[in-house]
Design a binder for these strands. Structure first.
Lengths: 246, 246
DNA sequence: TGGCGCAAGCTTACGGCGTTCACGGAAGTT
DNA sequence: AACTTCCGTGAACGCCGTAAGCTTGCGCCA
């Protein structure tokens, strides 16, 4: 009973809730191991249950369906990735803006490479079977996106780069970007040209990392570090950040 | 019998071979419909066989396994995509180099959007279940890559852009690019800086198209055309091609 | 033209999958 | 002590890929 009060974070959970939470965690942990070992099709309720010493229908007390489990995993990985990027960003002194963005972008790639299967679940093709993002997964995804918005906001505030002229943008692109700006929680709505630049950078980063994680960069050889660093240099140059070697 | 001679392409195939070929085609055609309709997990031997009025084990006369079928499909889609890009390239007069590369890159995206599921199979995450490329699939993939090499070779021959200085490249990146150059069948080995530029452009193109196909560009709104065109402009600018509206 | 060989396709079977439903028992509540 | 709530089981249904053995009939060659 005293243990309850000790472990209780905010609202002291009953014993039942604690053991339930532990089971929930165990399920997702085993599921992740299977995902890493055998890919998305390898994460099966029956296999998880077997490893836990129970039967598959029992798992339905915790997840309404196989898809729901996948969604929960997606949400977990989004927040884990966001935490990894944030941690890298925070690992350098606040005034070292250049160093922090280098660290953050490299952390994104590092997490992706260290967690290929999980990354594929987040950024690979959607579909009925890795689960079309819904509910908590999409929220976690937006929280992840916010991390990059913050990084970018800092650069923007410091006026590190010349904001491209809005006149260069197509009217329809302007409309899209305006909606985008409203949709996100920027402190002060950035100029459209800057938003476009951010999008472009994100696309490039996504491109390199995806290609590497999905093994579509085999033609360049085994050491993709060099290519990534070169891309990183280009991406950072677009936002006025001088490149630094790792 | 006369039909034999009429339909025979090169070496007149026996009747058995013809009907076998037709069955092979029918299998892949049905498989593709299922892929499009229900994603990779939806393409199942049993469902295909059912639709053909036969039983699943019968299909093993045509494909050694489910994976082998997937690989064959990958190979087909690679050549189909390569054909689409080549056709777009060839649809303009040979001397209109700028127009041709515009058409080719747009054709790549168009095919990807019109064949999302197929594109995901080709450029999505690998794995035991969409099949790690082997044999004919990888050959078809290289043939596809060659299409882009050709496009780029043309720009390079015309000296459309300032080739970046090789000194700006990391030694290890130089080594990777050198291996890359030897590995591919360029007429005359291009400078390393140019190769790097090509790779960078390809990464950017892959990035936009992947994000769009995988529905990871939802934040920008429903009309992604504008964003793609803006990226295209940037990509082309990198190789000295002035942008033209579609 | 007759017969033979071989490939196509079927049947049956095994193990694995997600999911549903009815049930027992334990934990917690009143 | 009675009652409720939740956890987990067992059996069942229909799906899946794949293996082994068997029948049938087409097509080649003598």
């Amino acid at each position: 009973m005293q243990a309850d009060a000790a472990t209780a974070g905010t609202t002291h959970p009953t014993r039942r809730e604690r053991v339930r939470e532990a089971t929930l965690l165990e399920i997702k942990e085993i599921a992740r191991r299977h995902l890493v070992a055998h890919g998305p099709p390898g994460v099966s309720l029956r296999a998880i249950a077997r490893e836990m010493g129970m039967t598959a229908p029992g798992l339905y007390r915790y997840f309404g369906s196989h898809d729901e489990l996948m969604l929960a995993m997606q949400a977990d990985y989004f927040t884990e990735l966001a935490d990894a990027v944030r941690a890298a960003d925070a690992s350098l002194p606040p005034d070292d803006v250049d160093g922090r963005i280098h660290a953050a972008l490299r952390a994104f790639r590092r997490w992706a490479l260290a967690n290929r299967a999980e990354f594929a679940l987040l950024f690979g093709p959607p579909g009925p079977h890795h689960g079309t993002p819904e509910g908590p997964a999409v929220a976690a995804g937006q929280e992840f996106a916010a991390v990059f918005f913050t990084l970018f906001d800092r650069l923007l505030a410091e006026e590190r780069f010349a904001v491209p002229d809005d006149d260069a943008l197509t009217p329809v692109l302007c409309r899209q970007l305006t909606a985008f700006a409203e949709h996100t929680g920027f402190s002060t709505a950035p100029p459209l040209g800057a938003l476009h630049l951010l999008t472009s950078c994100w696309v490039r980063l996504y491109g390199v990392v995806c290609m590497e994680v999905f093994h579509h960069l085999g033609f360049i050889g085994d050491d993709v570090d060099a290519l990534f660093e070169a891309e990183l240099r280009g991406i950072l140059a677009a936002v006025g950040v001088p490149y630094r070697v790792p």
